[in-house]
């Protein structure tokens, strides 16, 4: 049962991020994952909600590059997490125009600053052909979102994952 005088959904989420974890919720009535965090589960209206820590793997659903005057271009993307929910984020450490739909990505926590709470960002999971570089790729399971049409970029990761 939620008690909003003691703890808020965003508060719990931020505590996880401070530990380097991406947390999400599952409604125990219909076993559906949802995001953003809520006190009441969508559709069921249930308070029977479980917090879970994400494995941190997802696929770029769509992407844009925003141009602020006098700044470097900035990526903004929607990420479909393997656990079956979606969030807005950005893919870092890569040219924003090279962030592609269908690209596999991995979570890391951005610490935020004095004005901004910590928040999740992502880096590209680019399969590395060297033997030592295969570990991260093979750790990438199939996306669980049914009917996902993420695209070709998932191909290699999927094959590597199943041949383990």
């Amino acid at each position: 049962m939620s008690d909003l005088t003691k703890q808020s959904p965003l508060g719990v989420y931020v505590e996880h991020l401070k530990k380097g974890e991406l947390a999400y919720q599952v409604c125990k009535d219909d076993n559906k994952a949802f995001f953003y965090p809520r006190a009441i589960a969508p559709e069921t209206g249930s308070e029977n909600i479980e917090w879970r820590v994400s494995k941190g793997l997802g696929t770029v659903y769509t992407t844009t590059v925003v141009y602020y005057k006098g700044e470097q271009p900035l990526n903004v993307a929607m990420i479909d997490m393997d656990e079956g929910y979606r969030l807005m984020s950005r893919v870092e450490d890569i040219d924003p125009m090279q962030v592609k739909i269908g690209m596999r990505v991995k979570f890391r926590a951005h610490p935020g600053d004095d004005k901004t709470l910590p928040y999740p960002v992502f880096t590209a999971l680019i399969p590395d052909p060297s033997p030592g570089g295969r570990r991260e790729t093979s750790a990438s399971p199939l996306p669980s979102r049914p009917g996902d049409t993420g695209g070709k970029a998932e191909g290699p990761g999927v094959r590597d994952g199943s041949s383990k």
Binding site: Y61, V66, Y68, A77, M78, I101, G102
Partner: peptide, 26 residues
Amino acid sequence: NPYESPYRPILPISAYAMAAARHMHQ
């Protein structure tokens, strides 16, 4: 919006831009 504002999308433009990008891809 604590789940969107940190990423600094230019709203509403970036939201529609992402719809366009997905339509182009699909």
